[in-house]
């Protein structure tokens, strides 16, 4: 076994961390930007808007990520005249897909808030939009943090599929190193440890935010 060359390859694997971070943070960011308004509209708008938004959610939740990547990289973007890099395409596709999942997270959080709060807001002279923005969304954001941390962990591991269009993230680099060094297991273990650390740091961040913003009395044990 060529362990010395494996050590030489370690920086190459770690370099993939930046790509993985770009994919996950970009995907989560776009997903949040799309997911929050869609989740809110699905909860509070009319049935026609709900139907259209549910079609978007259904498409992006039911289509495998690899199909979406191919569809956008080789189909949608070139046909509308956009020649985007594999990394940007991957971030957008991960974002659109995460947006579908996040919209369901926010919908669930918004629906868990007692309707009486909106009625109380009306009685104070607030409009529906004011009530949603000032009363329900701030609470929904806090309630949805544990589910968002779950979405982060899933997105981190799903991002490995982006190599099919040329993005060299951590897991792909581990595979390349495994073949270059002839060591089958250790590079994957290293990638696994890196991903575990990234998951731990991310989850810790979400947990800290949750603890700092938790609504007193809403959920016990925090």
């Amino acid at each position: 076994m060529n362990y010395i060359s494996l050590i030489e390859y370690l920086p190459y694997i770690f370099e993939g961390l930046l790509w993985s971070l770009a994919l996950v943070l970009g995907g989560l960011g776009i997903g949040f930007t799309i997911g929050l308004p869609i989740g809110t509209m699905i909860t509070y708008s009319d049935k026609y808007t709900k139907f259209i938004l549910n079609v978007y959610i259904w498409i992006f939740r039911s289509t495998p990520l690899i199909v979406l990547l191919f569809l956008f990289y080789w189909g949608v973007f070139p046909n509308i005249g956009l020649k985007l890099s594999p990394l940007i395409t991957s971030i957008i596709v991960l974002g659109l897909r995460s947006g579908a999942y996040q919209s369901e997270i926010f919908r669930g959080a918004l629906e868990s808030i007692d309707e009486g709060q909106i009625l109380a807001a009306y009685s104070l002279g607030m409009s529906k939009i004011q009530a949603i923005i000032s009363i329900t969304i701030p609470q929904a954001l806090r309630i949805s943090i544990p589910s968002l941390s779950n979405e982060y962990a899933i997105l981190l591991k799903d991002s490995a599929i982006c190599f099919t269009i040329g993005v060299l993230e951590v897991l792909t680099r581990a595979r390349i190193v495994s073949i270059a060094t002839g060591i089958a297991l250790i590079p994957y273990l290293i990638a696994g440890i890196i991903l575990m650390m990234m998951t731990y740091i991310g989850l810790k961040f979400f947990h800290t935010v949750y603890k700092k913003t938790v609504i007193p009395g809403l959920i016990e044990g925090i």
């Binding site: 060359s5 030489e8 370690l10 920086p11 190459y12 370099e15 595979r175 390349i176 073949i179 270059a180």
Partner: peptide, 14 residues
């Protein structure tokens, strides 16, 4: 294909 030594592979510096 970076996974096909000795024809094509990558060095530690990428």
């Amino acid at each position: 294909d970076p996974e096909y030594p000795p024809f094509t592979q990558v060095l530690p510096n990428g």
